[in-house]
Write a protein that binds this DNA or RNA. Structure first.
Length: 627
RNA sequence: GCCCCUGUAGCUCAGUGGAGAGAGCAAAGGAUUCCUAAUCCUUGGGCCGCAGGUUCGAUUCCUGCCAGGGGCGCCA
């Protein structure tokens, strides 16, 4: 099985070798005793001809040492002392001055030992060192159903939470409900007006309706058909739901608004659950107010002299104190507090609860809002750099090449629920995570819906299912885990080496994606891994072929025929039919060398499946055993 | 006017301070006696928006310009 493989340790080891080599050069006087600051980074070269790992340190130092990079690289290569027992086979200077390292044949294969041992934990890291991170995302106002843009935020936030979670962070997910203020009143007014328009006669509620103040549909009211549903559902409310007739119009609107908001919120919760997104806490603006935290935070800002009364309103002095564009209103001249005021209270609560990092996922239309929130956080004495904001760019929804309009107000929008119903949860999530969050996304409904090869999500899922199928077929043949042994030295095909290298890189990819808060790197990685696997599968057999077995049983001329069969399998030709020690029943049916190769390749395929599953898990996409 | 995002193949987009710049789609043609053809192979296709700068080296970093999208409220 070989020793545990860890690419990070290996990279460190190589960097150390290079530093030692430079020290040796200094000792023999070939390079100055005083070296400028330099960094040694070990990378996976793009092309396999350039070795297994590469270093560009010669380029970095060449200028300072007044030496051509290539020449310096050659010197460093000569100074490097390789441990004959270690993983490295040789090092050479290449190109304009690269140091290319070649590993011994078996080294990449040993990554399978690690994957098989760690299984679902492969890719996990302790990057976060237990730091607590809060991710606040979606947080759509409960004034209408979630639309496609919210879906993108949900997919990004949820997979980012998974990504950070496997990277050693303690993650907490929150949805902030803006259920105070004008929008909710507008919702209430819209619903109540529709109710009066449609359900006045014969709804059995004549007495209540007679007692209710007349409400006209607002000019900027909500137009969607869900408003009609909400109005219709009012007829099912019990008598004590309705405010007493003599109460003011505002109270009626507020009561209906609260009802409608709760109802819409329930719909949002259901949609998100169907989308596979679960929050640790739903916190409402109304709660923040009720707890007194808004007044508290305003008092604190007042005490620190960050507030100013002017033109009848109370302002946060963000311009002079924090170089913001202008001061911002916290309390309107009407006495109402702004959204910003309660948001400051909410953000203070986030820090006060002890989160080390706070991530907000907002629509890109909020970008102008970020500086003032940072300013407020600073004003309260918290480190603003611990707040990271990911902006989600707009989703451009296309159907048959034509853009689909998405405006909550006009009522012509595609909801997240409709999207999931049409293309499925997995395809929707994959497409949302296909691109950088802050780049515009074209979402082609027709493509996402297609259960066809040009649809990338099925391509990746199929690779996973295909391995399951191979394993099932192997089981039918009597070959199943655990294997008596597997000789990873047999995985010598270039295609196999590529797959092994790619899987060895996976933990690094996960860690870097977590560091950058960018889950979209995983989709590209999975597509590439799946592609390499599909090609490998197509060109090479994993399981013993029937033909071989027939030849084996017939007992004549098998060698030449078997070798002829595997002509394009360079690895197989090298196989010696050596005896293997295990006395397993199944081995009577197969030629021993072939069985060993099958074990190795099954381990490879199984590991590919483990990695694909892990990647899909992080993205929140299912990994089917059968398709 | 100021701010954010984007500009890479016909289309949609990855990617990288380094070694002939990648994928999918689209177009054309091909591949299955045995592990799923939801797969694979072949073929074309590129001033990496433009111009400077930093660098041994820029598609990548910086500046300016051009183009597209978005934001600049006592809305949320």
């Amino acid at each position: 099985m070989g020793s545990q493989f860890d690419l990070e340790i290996l990279r460190e080891k190589i960097a150390g070798l290079i530093r030692d080599a430079l020290a040796r050069g200094q000792a023999e006087g070939s390079i100055p005793a005083e070296l400028p600051e330099y960094e040694v980074t070990i990378e996976l070269p793009r092309r396999s001809e350039f070795g297994d790992l590469a270093c560009n340190v010669a380029f970095r130092l060449a200028g300072k040492l007044r030496m051509p990079p290539r020449k310096l690289a050659e010197k460093i290569a000569a100074w490097i002392e390789l441990d004959p027992e270690g993983e490295l086979d040789r090092v050479e200077a290449a190109g304009g001055g690269f140091l290319n390292f070649l590993l011994k044949k078996r080294v990449w294969g040993s990554v399978l030992g690690r994957i098989q041992k760690e299984r679902g934990a492969y890719g996990d890291s302790s990057l976060g060192a237990g730091q607590r991170v809060m991710i606040e995302f979606v947080s759509a106002n409960p004034t209408g159903p979630l639309h496609v843009g919210h879906g993108r935020g949900a997919a990004v936030g949820d997979s980012l939470a998974n990504l950070l979670s496997v990277s050693g962070f303690q993650v907490w997910k929150e949805y902030y409900i803006n259920n105070v203020g004008r929008q909710i009143n507008l919702l209430g007014q819209s619903v109540l007006a529709r109710f009066q328009e449609r359900f006045y006669p014969g709804s059995g509620l004549d007495e209540i309706i007679n007692g209710m103040p007349a409400v006209e549909f607002p000019a900027d009211g909500y137009q969607g058909s869900y408003i009609l549903d909400l109005a219709r559902n009012l007829t099912k409310q019990p008598a004590d739901f309705w405010p007493p007739p003599e109460r003011a119009r505002e109270e009626w609107i507020r009561a209906i608004g609260v009802y409608a908001g709760q109802s819409v919120l329930q719909g949002i919760k259901d949609d998100l659950e169907r989308f596979g997104v679960v929050f640790d806490r739903w916190v409402s603006e109304e709660e923040i107010y009720r707890s007194g935290k808004v007044d508290q935070v305003l008092a604190e800002l007042e005490k620190k002299d960050y507030l100013e009364k002017r033109e009848g309103a109370t302002w946060f002095k963000s311009k002079d104190a924090f170089g913001e564009e202008k001061d911002r209103v916290l309390i309107r001249s009407t006495g109402e507090k702004t959204y910003f005021a309660s948001d400051i209270a909410y953000h203070r609560e986030k820090f006060a609860r002890g989160f080390d990092q706070i991530v907000n996922i907002w629509g890109s239309d909020h970008h102008g809002y970020i500086p003032r929130v940072r300013a407020a956080i600073q004003a309260l004495g918290y480190p603003a750099e611990n707040l990271k904001v990911i902006l989600i760019q707009f989703v451009n929804l296309l159907r048959a090449g034509k853009p689909v309009s998405m405006s909550t107000r006009s009522g012509e929008f595609i909801t997240l629920a409709e999207l999931v119903a049409e293309v499925g949860r997995d395809a929707a999530r994959f497409f949302f995570l296909f691109r950088k969050a802050d780049s515009h996304l074209d979402f082609d409904l027709e493509l996402a819906k297609k259960q066809a090869p040009e649809n990338p999500v099925y391509y990746v899922q199929y690779a996973h299912a295909r391995v399951a199928s191979i394993r099932e077929e192997a089981r039918r043949m009597g070959i199943s885990f655990p294997f008596p042994e597997w000789d990873l030295g047999l995985l010598t095909l270039p295609e196999e080496q590529v797959l092994l290298r790619q899987m060895a890189w996976f933990p690094n990819l996960v860690r870097e994606s977590a560091r950058a808060l960018e889950p979209h790197h995983l989709t590209a990685y999975l597509l590439e891994l799946a592609g390499n696997f599909h090609r490998y599968y197509h060109d090479h057999r994993v399981l013993p072929s029937k033909k071989t077995r027939e030849v084996q049983r017939s007992g004549e001329g098998q060698r030449s025929k078997v070798e002829g069969q595997s002509q394009n399998d360079r690895g197989e030709k090298d196989l010696e039919p050596e005896k293997i020690s295990n006395q397993d029943e199944r081995e009577r049916n197969f030629e021993p060398g072939e069985l060993k190769l099958t074990y190795a390749r099954l381990a490879l395929c199984d590991s590919i499946q483990v990695v694909i599953k892990k990647g899909l898990d992080i993205l929140g996409i299912q990994a089917p055993e059968k398709m």
